[in-house]
Design a protein around this nucleic acid. Sequence first.
RNA 1: CGGGAUGUAGCGCAGUGGUAGCGCACUUGCUUUGGGAGCAAGGGGUCGUUGGUUCAAAUCCAAUCAUCCCGACCA
Length: 604
Amino acid sequence: MVTQAPLWPNSLHAVRNSGFPAMRSSQLPLFTSKNDPADAQVASHRLLVRAGYIRKQASGLYTYLPFGDIVHRKIEQIIREEMDRFGAIEVSLPIITPAELWQESGRWDIMGKEMMRFFDRHEVAYALGPTHEEAMTDLARSFLQSYRQLPVNLYQIGRKYRDEIRPRYGLIRCREFTMKDAYSFHADEASLEETYQKMRECYRAIFERCGLKTIPVEADSGTMGGSSSEEFMVASAIGEEVLLLCSDAQCGYRANQEKTPYVGEPAEPIAEPPAMEDFDTGELKTVEQVAALTGKSPRDFIKAVVLEDAQKVVVCFIPGDRELSEAKVKNLTGLLDFAPAGAETIRALTGAEPGFTGPVGLKFADGETLNSKTVHVLFDRHLAGRTGLIAGANRTGFHKKNVTPGRDFVIKNSADIVAARAGDLCPKCRQSKLTETRGIEVGHIFKLGKKYAEKMGLTVLDASGKHLVPTMGCYGIGVGRTLATAVEQNHDERGIIWHPNLAPFWVYLISLAREEKERSMCEELYHKLKQAGVSVYLDERDERAGVKFHDAELVGFPFIVTVGKRAVESGKLELTLRRSGEKLLLETDELITQIRKMAEAKAP
RNA sequence: CGGGAUGUAGCGCAGUGGUAGCGCACUUGCUUUGGGAGCAAGGGGUCGUUGGUUCAAAUCCAAUCAUCCCGACCA
């Protein structure tokens, strides 16, 4: 008999501090279904529901059934162990956050409808926390007094609430989800950098233990505000973000599209073009239409895109063959809840119908006020130095040709506002082309800076007794997303294929026992596995063999062991490896040794 | 919020004005038993909700709610 302490550090019993790494179907039933759910579009959603890991309660809200809960806890536990190893401290903040804190940081008004808000009986406003920068900064200011207490990295694993515009793809985009969020506080930039690098390493370790292949990319820090930022993406066709990767592996540039600078081709020098003039384009409005009319390339056009929100009108001019990066414009201008400008706004701005907007002769200049909104005029930096371009004439039915920036109009604000795309030159090596892939974000680390500490009055005394505003870092991981993407990456047409570190149990033990001898052999094996620290789920349902085989493959534990008449007759047990489908006939002790060996090899 | 679609039994679906059905699941019995068993007998639905048209509505009309898909937010 093999008797050892459980080798499985993140086992169910370790997670729950009570030992039952073994379970039987009579105690913990399966929740599998033969039908695919009608509302599932993607593999992880379909399989997790069908295999009985999760069940939908309402749009974007999921119940974790026992198997799903176990996997979820295992991921949490891996995160805990790694965060602890890298020096972070676990706390647990309330899910409910008072409006007061959000008002202090100024985010009560900018978080928008995504934040779920409510009032208590005293009419005091609260939100269900979509994130916890404010709450954690509030905690920090309550106990941080000296630079000697820094750095400190506090984390929690808890539910977050975001009233998503469109919940989608099962666990991948929910309204309630579990997130590990950590916030670090530092006396100086160097200390923040050190922790940031530790977290980069920590995240790599976490995802590796989860058996998840991630692509770390440079990212946009979005509404959080901050500088350095890295996202951990899982490559997937259903990914909602576009990543740009340098085709030269040596260069290794990888970034979120929103962050990737557009490196344009250098402008060919052209002799001074003739003076600009209007020409009749009638009903033709788009770059493509006018290009077809004139025989010019879209690259020789100035495309206008006008965005507006409640406070601003932003007029953007970009090369005609490119798309505007709304993310870049948003970061530059601070637009909130914006949309393409309405026809009314365009008419006021240009004196013409929409479709004829150009940089020459706008009715409002940068900084002026239109309908109580501030006008911003932005030029893509690649327009400078170009000559002889075509642009809207701000006159219905007309465009201008021979338009030359600098000569015919002044470029006051110039920036990179074009979206990079596949085929562009890599902004890092400037040699190779970029390629595109889609990804799902499972983790995000970034340097927050002093924004929250400043707004919320978090200070400590430095060595000379002066007040010092700590600088912060912030590090998140979506637990449910990690679970779902693990399934996205590891499944086949029969079901899920769990990594041993995430599987609810290692072994799915199928009892096909009809005779007493078979039954006792199965029981004996069950106990031996249990005692050897090999977690095992015994399917002892009164079902046909086929049903059990199908369910075993659907729920996806890494090892399937079958005990029936054949085992009693031959003395050998049948071990099926879920991933490869390979079948091995082994004697009991050998079986246990083999399983431990294989599971360990896959485990870190 | 804009555009599209769908709400009928636990799940998946059919049913275009005249007695509410099918497959799976469920209950009971007999047979069967290493890849989603067979036979027999059962149980289960205010047809999302409200209102309207009609002798008669799951079916036609209106409103409303919910869910899903396509676009803007994010772990």
